[in-house]
Nucleic acid binder design. Structure first.
Length: 114
RNA sequence: CGAGGAAAACAGACAGUCGCGUGGGCAGGCCGAAAGGCCGUCCAUGAGGAAAGUCCGGGCUCCACAGGGCAAGGAUAACGGGUAACGCCCGCCGAAGGCGACUUCAGGAAAAGUGCAACAGAGAUAUACCGCCUGUGCGGCUUGGCCGCACAGGUAAGGGUGGAAAGGUGCGGUAAGAGCGCACCCGACGGCUGGGAACUGUCCGUCGCUGUAAACUCUAUCCGGAGCAACACCGGUAUGGGAGCAGGAGGCAACUCCAAGGCUGGCCCGGCCGCUCCCGGGGUGGCUUGAGCGUGCCGGCAACGGUACGCCUAGAUAGAUGACUGUCAAAUACAGAACCCGGCUUACAGUUUUGCUCGCGCC
């Protein structure tokens, strides 16, 4: 993955919330849906309910990082949305990483696994 | 050494591996006719003391306006200075607190007018309830006087109420009393002294006035409105978002279930396109060199000013600083620029420095 291709428009987010598959795990929620673009797109949602700007920034950066480090393991051609929860900013990094992989496996997003 | 109070600085550092924004470089790669774009790589740089709250003061932009005045509304309130300006800062005065260093302050006017002051209390700019005193009348008695009652008058010393009773204490004075007189004290005003001024005082004179303006009000000074989503340009381009476009079945109905414009397609996803209504966008500039920062010297008690030299220090646009490992005793606080400055307010773990006050000990 070179530069991260991101979802920006509000309608794209709403389409995923309504029609995409989802999985919930400690510290995050993952939505995904095929997009037929041949590559993946990432959207990150951090609600103001999580806290002030510093907390929100930290949650968003950690979710982007976990996607960046594991992006090459994923099947291509999906839109993915990560939604932050309160624990996203405070949970240990290893827990966050394993949670992301577990959610991807649940939604059959990992490359090379059936 | 202990306790206290003031001012200032910092806001994890270093190393390594991945990763991001911005700017610049490259006989580099790909695309393109070109302008250029994308990628790679290297270098530089990349959040705060409050970036926060959006409470004041400005710059900048547009709108209104000939100039000026009046009214309304709002803000401020000792004095002197600083500043682009301020409701900010410094100095100083006054008041309150502290042994002290020092801290705190909604600090103009109640001789313009209106209002309010509950309850208590006899009376709240004004009063005679009790008491005290004088006189007259009547009565009594232990009869040169005393006591009781009634009436007329004097009295704010005493009692009681209250936040406050109209200066306080003492002496004189008086029928009893009263600033009525005197001494000291307190307060207000005027003079004089000192000070640049607010103000001040072992001085002089006059006076003794209820509180409340965070009640209306009056006085003095200041204030046109909206904000970078401002505004300017690119061009009349590119073309976005939302809802509807289909009905059928069950049921009296509310409602429930299935299905839901056209094309591609076996189906899902995805893509493209048409009609009606509604809502509106895109790109670039503004955007960081500025009442700038650092150091030295000069002036000033200080805020600050002057001068010389040096420095360039984020400009994103769904929004860049993150992850992991190691070392340091620990670093886990409050918290993220969004046009830019000067302040105020609020939040805050921990560390360091400077000078100061009080107490104890030693020389």
């Amino acid at each position: 993955m070179k530069r991260a291709v991101t979802l920006k428009e509000n309608y794209e987010f709403r389409r995923l919330y309504q029609k995409g598959a989802s999985a919930v795990g400690g510290g995050m929620v993952l939505y995904c849906r095929k997009n037929r673009l041949g590559h993946n797109r990432l959207g990150v949602t951090v609600s103001v309910k999580l806290g002030h700007a510093v907390v929100r920034n930290r949650a968003r950066r950690r979710l982007r990082e976990v996607y960046r480090l594991n992006g090459d393991k994923l099947r291509q051609g999906y839109d993915i949305i990560l939604v932050a929860r309160t624990r996203t900013a405070t949970a240990p990094w290893k827990d966050l990483n394993s949670t992301f992989l577990r959610l991807c496996r649940k939604l059959d997003l990992l490359e090379g696994e059936a």
